[in-house]
Structures are given as structure tokens and as C-alpha cells.
């Protein structure tokens, strides 16, 4: 089985978000970039397939050279090879078209992407990718087993989960649950050394359509001060929620 894990290079979850150039761009100043958490779960699951079922695991990311440290980290965790499509990931439609070209060239059976990137929260790349490639698709995937061409997967639904049967070739939008939190791996020295020698192919983007563009950003208005209610006067909270907030 040949697996492609799609890696989105995103600001660390603790990042403060600011915008620049007249609020038209995300300000990357002082921001630490990491593997998108949903992709980290997917990559770790891919490592399981590599170790238990002899899968070959490649990673791909659409991004400029600044994405390379994140890609190297994926190699250090254990991916065999990496592909970087040398283009700014302008929107999910653009990224999906680039990844579709990568998949066609590489002949992958299973494409593991994340439910969403935690930067622009598009939640669209895996679905568009699957459709462009005419592959099966499971979104919000929290479990996947592969036996030959047969796949049993689970996905999260509102209020529970659903078991799904399908076949390869398949694209998933993965998330926590694919592996446990404690299974996530911090690259060790040996992994980091080996990652330096692994192939990182840089390919130029194909021509693609741009469907959407962000023209301006802003931030939510700062919050007013919290209204404190005395612990011995809980009744007041009930009244405030009823009369002032009007939520009960």
C-alpha cells in the first residue's frame, strides 16, 4: 500500500493572531509553524500502517520553502519521502488541484489529509481532492483499518459515530481518534539525522483556478470585563442569565 499524507504547515496552537499590510495578510512575525494537528494524527496512523502492514508513506505539502522545516519534521517522524509543491497555498481549491496532480504522478492507494487546517479552517481540501480524483472519501475519520482493498472506517457524526465500509483508493479527512494522543511521536535524534538524507522533491505547481480570495482580515472586538457573581449568591447568576443575557 502506498500512502500519501497531506501536510498543512500552520501556526502553533498557542500563536497570537495578527494581520499586516493593511489587514490583508496574516502576520507571520514571531509565529512558530507546526504540522497541522489533524495531519499529525494522520501521519501517526500512517506510521502504524508502515510498521504493521509494510506501507510506503510519502508526505506532500503545498507551500513555499518556509514550509520545509515542517516537512522535515514529518520525515523525522518516519515518512519515507516528501514532496513540496512550490506555491503559496492561496485557497483550498488551489491546494486540492495541486495535490491531485501529486497523487496522479505518485499512484497512491490511500490519501490521508486532515478534517481541517487550523489556520484558515477551510475543511475542504480532502473532499475536493477526492472528487477531482474520483476516489472514495470519508470525512472526520476517527478510525481506519485496511485489509487488501477493503476498508473499514469510522467517522464522527453529531452526537455519535458511524462505521463505514468502503474500498481503496480512498481519501480521508482525519482527526483525533485515528490514534491516541499518547501515540503521537516527538522526533528523536536518529529520526532527525535520517530525515536529512531522505528525498524532498520540490515540484512546480500546475496551472490551477483560483476560486476564492481573502481580501481583508479583522479580529473580534475585545471582550468586556467579566461580571463576577459571589459564590454565595448563585441566584444572581440565574437572574442575569434570564434577564440580561436572555439565554435561559
Amino acid at each position: 500500500m502506498k500512502i500519501l499524507v497531506c501536510i498543512s504547515n500552520v501556526p502553533d496552537t498557542t500563536s497570537k493572531i495578527n494581520f499586516t499590510e493593511g489587514d490583508t495578510k496574516f502576520d507571520t512575525n514571531g509565529v512558530q509553524f507546526v504540522i497541522n494537528p489533524n495531519d499529525e494524527f494522520g501521519l501517526t496512523r500512517a506510521m502504524w500502517f508502515k510498521e504493521k502492514q509494510g506501507a510506503i508513506v510519502h508526505v506532500a505539502s503545498v507551500g513555499g520553502s518556509t514550509a520545509e522545516p515542517t516537512i522535515r519534521k514529518a520525515l523525522a517522524i518516519g515518512a519515507d519521502e516528501a514532496i513540496r509543491v512550490n506555491a503559496e497555498p492561496t485557497d483550498g481549491h488551489f491546494v486540492a488541484q495541486q495535490l491531485a496532480a501529486v497523487v496522479k504522478n505518485g499512484g497512491y492507494d490511500l490519501i490521508i489529509a486532515g478534517r481541517e487546517s487550523i489556520d484558515y479552517n477551510g475543511g475542504m481540501v480532502p473532499g475536493i481532492l477526492a472528487t477531482l480524483l474520483d476516489m472514495n472519501f470519508v470525512n472526520m475519520c476517527i478510525d481506519i483499518e485496511v485489509d487488501g482493498n477493503n476498508v473499514q472506517a469510522s467517522r464522527e457524526i453529531d452526537g455519535g459515530k458511524e462505521k463505514i465500509k468502503t474500498t481503496l483508493p480512498l481519501v480521508i479527512g482525519g482527526q483525533k481518534g485515528l490514534v491516541q494522543e499518547s501515540d503521537l511521536r516527538i522526533p528523536n535524534m536518529r529520526g532527525i539525522m535520517m530525515a536529512r538524507k531522505k528525498t524532498l522533491n520540490v515540484v512546480e505547481p500546475i496551472e490551477a483556478t483560483v476560486a476564492t480570495s481573502d481580501i481583508k482580515f479583522d479580529k473580534p472586538a475585545p471582550k468586556g470585563a467579566v461580571k463576577l457573581v459571589d459564590a454565595n449568591n448563585v441566584e444572581e447568576l440565574v437572574q442575569l442569565l434570564h434577564n440580561e443575557a436572555k439565554v435561559i
Partner: peptide
């Protein structure tokens, strides 16, 4: 969860720009 599953497929099928 269901509409987040189907919306990108609808968008790709209709060659539509999708904003979530």
C-alpha cells in the same frame, strides 16, 4: 458533520468556490 462532509464534494462537482 454531514454537511461539512458533503459541501466540498458539491463544490467540486459544480466547479463552485466554497466558503465555510
Amino acid at each position: 458533520s454531514d454537511t461539512k462532509f458533503l459541501a466540498p464534494i458539491v463544490a467540486a462537482k459544480l466547479e463552485a468556490g466554497y466558503v465555510s
